[in-house]
Design a protein around this nucleic acid. Sequence first.
DNA 1: AATAAAATCATCTTTTTTAATGATTGATGC
DNA 2: GCATCAATCATTAAAAAAGATGATTTTATT
Lengths: 204, 204
Amino acid sequence: MKIKVFVVDDHYMVIEGIRSLLQNENDIEWMGHATNAVSCLAFLKQQLPDIILMDVNLPDVSGIELCKQVRQLYPSVFVLGLSTFNQQPIIRNMLENGASGYVLKNATKEELLEAAKAVMAGKSYLSFDVALSLRKTDDELPIITRREKEILLLIADGLTNAEMAAKLFISIPTVNTHRKSLLNKFNVNNTASLIKLAAKHHLI
Amino acid sequence: MKIKVFVVDDHYMVIEGIRSLLQNENDIEWMGHATNAVSCLAFLKQQLPDIILMDVNLPDVSGIELCKQVRQLYPSVFVLGLSTFNQQPIIRNMLENGASGYVLKNATKEELLEAAKAVMAGKSYLSFDVALSLRKTDDELPIITRREKEILLLIADGLTNAEMAAKLFISIPTVNTHRKSLLNKFNVNNTASLIKLAAKHHLI
DNA sequence: AATAAAATCATCTTTTTTAATGATTGATGC
DNA sequence: GCATCAATCATTAAAAAAGATGATTTTATT
């Protein structure tokens, strides 16, 4: 029984690369590809693969959203996240939305096959670097509350405390409190460092 | 006379994709690949391709640096930049360091061939989106001076004006002046917006 | 050599942020 | 029901950034 694989990625080179890597594998059946979320969903109405290799950066809908939809509509289809960068929040998000694993684009053929087989066996698979960085992140990225995140985004948009207070219907001292706890949690001394860190972790 | 092509990219999928796309082309001779700058330079000591397809994000040295070195050591070898994202400052930098063009990783086989031929004919080639965004950038990304850039980096590192002044052996008002002209040039009102914008454009 | 651009410094004012402390209310989880 | 945490607000003060203007000295560029 071959593993039916489908790829969603907006880069032809990557699609072609995966196809080329897997084409002579006896265990793999290539079902085709899509370059965006819409055509991926259209394809799934016709046929169901066993595994979708899914890039997280798609031109229309984000891979995270697509992953969520696919898993809801077709629970039998496993999703393997795929991307160039080792971005913890995104990877975390993919996994929370039903992805069975995550491989980076520098994966070898062997790693791809290993991942596919692990997923088909009901296990999950993470590239070594991904697993490593996910573990590290737990310690490094502070846990911030809903409200703090909201404030963070507004700070990044350049609002002053007064503007945020008006926008959120709360008092200026309250905004200030959240702001201070952000600085505390991220262990920085001023807005500049805060925004830089947040940008680095793709929070804004 | 076939065009001899060599690829430098740290993603196997991309290398394999390009190889697969070009392998049946009569005009193209595949010379091999490297996954980092060091092995690329090692290869060039043995043989010289006509064109190097070069990713800008390499694990050891940046593509920009590698491009510069290759062009200095082997002026007959053309470099075509290659990357996932349409990052204006990086692209600009590659071109300034001798690259003959730039293609995105969602390029089709046709586009790759067109780019290769253009480069061999002494022309330069830019993906449509790249050309578009480079033109747009001229208006959108302000030109900042050396000193301003220096200040920008220090602000992002969380230094206060006083700390920067001490570090750069200049007065606090001077730091302030640079800081204000940064806000002016980026057309923002405060540090938060400035850092966010700078991060977006990969300046910090 | 002349012009323009960059880097430097000064003064003064206003706005904003950061800091330090304390306190109340409501929700969540055990 | 009790403990914990999130979210709210208050007061006061110091530090920092932002805004407005003007001026001098290097450094590039033509």
